[in-house]
Simulated assay, not measured.
Amino acid sequence: MTTGQGRCVLGMVGSDKHNKGIRTIARIFRDHGLEVVYIGEHNTSQQLAAVAVHEDADFVGVSFSNGNYLARAAEIVGALDEAGGADIAVVLGGLIHSEDVPELNRLGVAEAFGPTSSPEDILEAIDRLIERRRGTFETSNA
């Protein structure tokens, strides 16, 4: 299902600078009907949170090509809470290790996608996330 109404803020925090993956996801999201606000590289968690709140985003998506995502995830969730965006979901992608996903969920990350995640799986999860946030989640696929 294509939501056609979702809005996301995509960016990278800290010194992580390998942006090919997040730019590809931005295009996939746009083609899927999502409104994408791409803020690029070298952001702070506070900058990311401020833009997400200002844009009334359904979720923020952050790409990681290094192993610093556990600490950064907690920082992003905290920054969103402080900025008044506790209801904005956090989605991570990139070089995420599957064994870290339970800890990321505990920290408040809604979804985490690693290198083997397919675009179809990502889009299905994003559609469900937006439906839950907006209270339009369908209980059947019929």
Rank of each mutant, 00 (worst) to 15 (best):
N66I: 12
A110N: 14
M12V: 07
L104C: 08
F64E: 06
R106D: 02
A86N: 10
T3A: 02
G94L: 00
Y69D: 04
G6W: 03
V13H: 02
H42K: 15
I28Q: 14
G21L: 13
T136L: 09
N66T: 07
F29K: 11
E131Q: 14
L10V: 08
D16Q: 06
R7M: 08
V109E: 00
K20M: 15
E103H: 12
A26E: 07
G67H: 08
R72H: 08
A110L: 08
T2I: 05
N141C: 11
Y38A: 15
L34I: 12
E55C: 00
T2H: 11
V9W: 09
M12P: 08
A110C: 05
S118F: 13
D16T: 02
H54F: 11
H32V: 09
L80T: 02
L80I: 01
G108P: 08
G94K: 05
A74W: 10
A74S: 09
F59L: 02
R23M: 09
H42F: 09
E35V: 13
H42V: 08
E41G: 08
C8W: 04
I25R: 12
A125V: 07
N68V: 06
D16P: 13
G4T: 09
H18G: 03
N19E: 15
D56I: 10
P119T: 01
V60T: 01
A49M: 05
E103T: 10
A112Q: 00
P119L: 01
L70S: 10
N141T: 10
T139C: 10
G85R: 02
E82A: 10
A50F: 09
Y38Q: 15
T139L: 14
L129C: 04
E120V: 11
V51Y: 01
E120L: 11
N66L: 12
D81M: 09
A26Q: 05
V13L: 03
G84E: 01
S118R: 11
R7T: 06
V60P: 04
G11D: 00
R27E: 11
E120R: 15
E111P: 05
D58C: 00
V9D: 07
V60W: 02
A79T: 00
L92Y: 03
G78H: 07
L95R: 11
A110K: 04
L107H: 01
